[in-house]
Computed example of a mutant assay.
Amino acid sequence: MDEDRSGDDPSRTADALQTAVERYLRSKSTGVDDEGDPSGSYVDAAGSELRRFVGWMRARGRGLDDLAGDDGPLVVRRYVERLDDRVTAGGIAGSTANAYFSYLSGFLTYCVRDGRLPTNPALTNTAREALPADESSRTDQQFWTTEQRRRLVGFVDRRAAEAVDERGFGATTEARDRALVRVLAYSAVRGAEVLRHPKDDREGRQGVRWSDVDLERSTLRVLGKDQHLGPIALPAKAAVGVERWQAVQRPPSEDWPVFSTDHAPSKYAAVREELGDDVDVAALVDEAGGIDALLRERDVAPPALTTEGARSVLKRLTDEAGIDVDDEAGYLQLHGARRGIIGEVYRRDRGDAQDLARHKDLSTTHAAYQHIGVEEQTERFDEHLEEID
């Protein structure tokens, strides 16, 4: 995606991008300088980075047309990866990289309103997931605490065990939720790595399949933030939930999603897509004894649970478990699970935390969890001060 396309004579579309940036900056200006150029605090802050973006695009033979096509999200992603490289090299902070991305996204939204682009490619998951951590906002981000994690895991364990005792193979929702919570709580996966994103049809973004699970080796294959599709560790506390869920779900094939949806219309749609629109799905469901029985009978894989669906699940489970969450969200969020368990490991071993987080550089882990280091320093300083005075 980052190849040089200078042979395509892209000067026209590159000039169009430059023109769009200058029009955008003028729309944001609060005045003009002595040379007649737009000025103002936002223009001063965003202008240099947006012009740098234009130069980066021009050097690669790209322009506005590339942002309007199917490759637009990947083009933006490559630029975001450049920002991430600058953070890793110590050139800019994660918060600065996120600010630069906000400038770019704001400009691209303007291009949509101005009729220059059909959509904003920066708003896609493809582009955004490459953003480096913004360490300046750590205190505003949710971390599952040890007590919250234990209470939620204990709740879904009891709930699933009772449901299995009562309904056996019918306890699908409870057994699935137990597996989901345990995987989120203990494996440090990102929600997008194991759940389905409706607007991202890439392999690895449609929910993990049973073919991605290796319980013997305790691994789970996911598409990581670095776009590498490969195995990650599946700790025993996570694997036990997955194994018990597999025994309840009894997937007919390895193509079935590990975390399948409970949304009935989506299941009906999957059957119609597989068998054709001319099939009387309702009649087949009646004959089979239910939509789930039909899916199993015809080996039609149900859609995977979406990230939004998982948020609804966590909202419901947080409430049913009686867990107080003192933040704006009011429930245990997907990414809070990842931050929480990595933070716990970080307190014990920095290197293991880096491995669990799958950060390329330890400095990224330090930046993301620097608040823990400061807490530990304070404790040590307090001990010294007690001895001194």
Rank of each mutant, 00 (worst) to 15 (best):
D2P: 09
G7H: 03
G7V: 05
D9G: 10
R12M: 10
A14C: 01
A14E: 03
A16N: 06
T19A: 15
V21R: 03
V21C: 04
L25H: 07
E35N: 13
D37G: 11
P38Y: 04
Y42W: 08
V43Q: 00
G47W: 04
E49H: 15
V54R: 00
A59K: 15
L64K: 00
D70I: 05
D71L: 01
P73M: 05
V76E: 00
R78C: 07
Y79P: 02
V80W: 03
V80K: 00
G90Y: 02
G91L: 10
G91Y: 09
Y100S: 07
Y100P: 05
Y100N: 12
F101C: 01
S102I: 13
S102P: 06
Y110A: 09
Y110H: 14
R116L: 15
L117N: 02
P121V: 02
A127S: 04
E129W: 09
E129C: 11
L131M: 06
P132Q: 04
E135F: 01
S137M: 07
R138F: 05
Q141K: 15
E147Q: 10
R150Q: 14
L152V: 05
V153A: 14
A160H: 07
A160D: 10
E162D: 15
E162K: 12
A163Y: 03
D165Q: 12
E166N: 06
G170F: 08
D177N: 15
R178N: 10
S187W: 05
A188Y: 07
R196W: 11
H197I: 09
K199L: 12
D201C: 03
G204W: 09
G204Y: 04
S211D: 15
V213H: 04
D214Q: 09
L215C: 02
S218D: 11
S218W: 07
H228M: 11
G230E: 08
P235D: 06
A238P: 05
V240T: 14
R244V: 05
R244W: 09
W245T: 04
A247C: 01
Q249L: 15
R250E: 15
D255Y: 08
S260G: 13
H263Q: 10
K267W: 04
L275V: 13
D277A: 15
D280K: 05
A282E: 14
A283N: 03
G290H: 03
E297I: 01
D299G: 09
V300F: 08
P303T: 11
T306F: 05
S312L: 12
S312W: 09
V313D: 07
L314S: 03
D319K: 13
A321V: 10
G322Q: 01
I323L: 02
D324R: 12
D327W: 08
A329R: 14
L332M: 15
Q333Y: 07
H335P: 03
H335K: 09
G336R: 04
G343C: 07
R348W: 09
D349W: 06
D352P: 03
A353R: 00
H359Y: 08
K360I: 00
A368V: 08
Y369C: 13
Q370W: 10
I372D: 02
E376H: 07
T378L: 14
F381Y: 11
F381R: 12
F381E: 12
H384D: 13
L385A: 14
E386T: 14
D389P: 12
D389Y: 14
